[in-house]
């Protein structure tokens, strides 16, 4: 599967979306991320893999400044999106998060109707002028989230009434509705069964056409299935970052090899 995509991959690896240099994160006394440099390319799925507690989720949360909400967390270093430093004082984290959407490990629909779940982002950011326009965004996002057919007749039902897999696709649709450029996914399938996982993975592959997707995953098979680039984190270091095919077939670092062959982690 990876080999078949190789040609396609090379074509797209041109424009840089996110450039991180010397990123360090401290949680109180703990040094969670140590000097990480990453280049994330547009219209690509980049997977972060690594054993639990290696810092991959923490690093992901740096990209939309979600770590700001944790008072003991301190981020240093430079992260640029489209050449603009997101930690700059002039950047409003609220606007940044509209630009960099996020999907979480556990599906977290709001206890509101399906419609209101999707419409929430466009509403708070004032993206629409009329109800018709909002309806259109909701439908487009739900279609993009591959869940429209399942919910189109019950848009007024509570988002929490859906099954786990549907909830997660709803959350992806909700993130898309704010029209982000980057989509961050923090283990989006870890709470889902295999069928729902397959649906979400298919969706992620779809989304690559329009967005730069960064996904944290525990499952190496998943990383191999959905991503074009893979970064391996270990104990807060970025050990290896390369094309997914290279990482899984020809790892350069012995730690990466140990991890993907199941000897550590």
């Amino acid at each position: 599967m990876n080999d078949m995509r190789k040609i396609e991959r090379d074509v797209h690896m041109t424009d840089l979306k996110i450039k991180a240099r010397g990123v360090n994160v401290h949680y109180g006394e703990t040094h969670a991320i140590k000097d990480v440099d990453v280049d994330i390319v547009d219209k690509t799925v980049t997977a972060f893999i690594g054993p639990s507690g290696c810092g991959k989720s923490t690093f992901l949360r740096c990209l939309n400044r979600m770590n700001d909400t944790i008072s003991i967390c301190r981020v240093t270093g430079q992260i640029e999106i489209d050449g603009r430093d997101i930690n700059d004082r002039a950047v409003d984290p609220v606007q940044l998060r509209a630009q960099v959407g996020m999907v979480f490990q556990k599906p977290n629909p709001f206890p509101k109707s399906i419609y209101d779940n999707i419409a929430y982002g466009p509403r708070i950011h004032g993206l629409t002028k009329s109800k018709a326009e909002l309806d259109e965004i909701v439908e487009k996002s739900l279609r993009r989230g591959a869940i429209w057919d399942e919910v189109k007749d019950r848009l007024n039902d509570s988002g929490t009434s859906l099954s786990g897999g549907q909830q997660q696709r709803l959350c992806i649709a909700r993130a898309i509705a704010t029209q982000p450029e980057v989509l961050l996914m923090d283990e989006p399938c870890s709470a889902l069964d295999p069928i729902a996982t397959a649906q979400v993975e298919e969706l992620i592959d779809e989304l690559r056409r329009d967005y730069s997707v960064v996904i944290v995953t525990h499952s190496m098979q998943q990383a191999a299935r959905v991503s074009q680039k893979t970064a391996f984190f270990h104990l807060g270091h970025l050990v290896e970052f390369n094309n997914t095919g290279e990482i899984f077939t020809n790892p350069q670092d012995s730690r990466t090899e140990s991890y993907i062959t199941g000897r550590i982690g």
Partner: peptide
């Protein structure tokens, strides 16, 4: 749940919007 807070903040809601709407 914390996940709801994260969900709202992750969509770019301010703290006040998260509090009032979610």
């Amino acid at each position: 749940p914390q996940t709801l807070r994260d969900g709202a903040l992750g969509l770019g809601a301010t703290r006040a919007e998260m509090m009032l709407n979610v």
